[in-house]
Nucleic acid binder design. Structure first.
Lengths: 201, 201
DNA sequence: TTTCTTATGTTAACTTCGTTAACATTAAAG
DNA sequence: CTTTAATGTTAACGAAGTTAACATAAGAAA
């Protein structure tokens, strides 16, 4: 049995790290345990990653990529602007609910600093670009004044914030989506809610 | 110099814990360091708190209380429902921006489990009750049908989600509020934004 | 092929951490 | 005054992140 150079340690570590992250979160992801589970020495991970942050960064990058994919799919699902914003919001929340630990990783405090991991920064920027493009592109053919552009940007922020808030509150258990309803319908309802005062008292 | 029973260890520990939390977050709050900074033995904190979670719970409780206070002040600032919702949202975000570590503590994953700290649960419930009452009480004198009540609840969730999303994204640095504008104005603008399609292209 | 260099792996150590046990001292209750 | 509970101490355990020192394998250079 050859102990040295099994050849795929990096990928195995990454996959195992992903598994641990999914059912225990970044807190439960200890390098030593990861090494033991992978069947490798406790210092081996340091040959492939820049310590714990390095592993978290790698996982976060792939999480950002999958996140961006889902958003792009949603953005491409319709030509109508309003529907697109709604679909994006629903996809945003759905990703968070289906991948709560990944979502927390890419938005939370245990995410390694973006300025220390350029690839991580790129992955993050890309995801948000997808969002912003899809929300702000009401009509790509129209010329926009500066004011209109600013408004579009604000609309993107507002939409993003709403979806993000719902996602966070749902995965933190502060909002419990009704069991008798599709999650996406519930989310769509919330997204469509505006806060102007209703007609009746 | 009397080393034993200096009398106020619990409060000093709490205050010091608060200080550490503010500029390093829960991750940097180590019990041993806390004890050292407080000038007490490394096991002393265990006489006053239920381990690390106990200290975090205590800090979180006071954070929830201050949070609820701010929200109540905002809720009482106007009789108009729409203005009240806006004021609440602005206060919500302002608390998060002024106390990012506390905000993260009470909403994040390092918050001790609510079901293990009843006082923490109460503090949390109280804060959210303040929110929900202020948002849903359009007109307390009017009788509401079930449907109207459900709508009111949804409106509360929508408002809460928006404010929460803005708060999170701002303190995480994903949204950078414009420097040439009051934070509250920026937030109010975002809160008022609705996502129906604009008239012009 | 043989040698040198680099990548990859191992073991062992260092520091810090949370937590608990065993013991010491003080304050308060009886 | 005596007893007891509260509050403090030191010392230890196991786990963690990280690094240094060393070992082996793979590939380039000779």
């Amino acid at each position: 049995m050859s102990k040295y150079h099994h050849g795929d340690v990096r990928n195995v570590l990454l996959q195992q790290a992903e598994n641990i992250l999914i059912d225990e979160g970044p807190a439960g992801l200890s390098l030593r345990r990861l090494a033991r589970l992978t069947g490798v020495s406790e210092a081996a991970p340091y040959r492939h990653f820049d310590g714990k942050d390095g592993i978290l960064a790698a996982v976060a990058i792939s999480a950002f990529e999958r996140f961006a994919e889902q958003l792009e799919i949603a953005a491409a699902s319709t030509e109508n602007h309003e529907e697109r914003v709604m679909a994006l919001g629903a996809a945003y929340v759905q990703f968070a609910v289906e991948n709560p630990q990944h979502f927390r990783l890419i938005f939370g405090r245990e995410r390694p600093p973006l300025d220390q991991y350029p690839e991580l920064r790129d992955a993050a920027d890309n995801a948000f670009d997808v969002l912003q493009r899809a929300v702000t592109s009401v009509d790509r053919k129209a010329e926009m004044t500066l004011t209109e552009a600013a408004t579009a940007y604000n609309r993107a922020l507002a939409a993003w914030s709403r979806a993000h808030g719902i996602a966070m509150l749902v995965i933190d258990g502060m909002i419990v989506p009704p069991a008798d309803q599709e999650l996406s319908n519930f989310v769509l309802g919330l997204l469509a809610e505006d806060l102007t005062i209703p007609a009746s008292a």
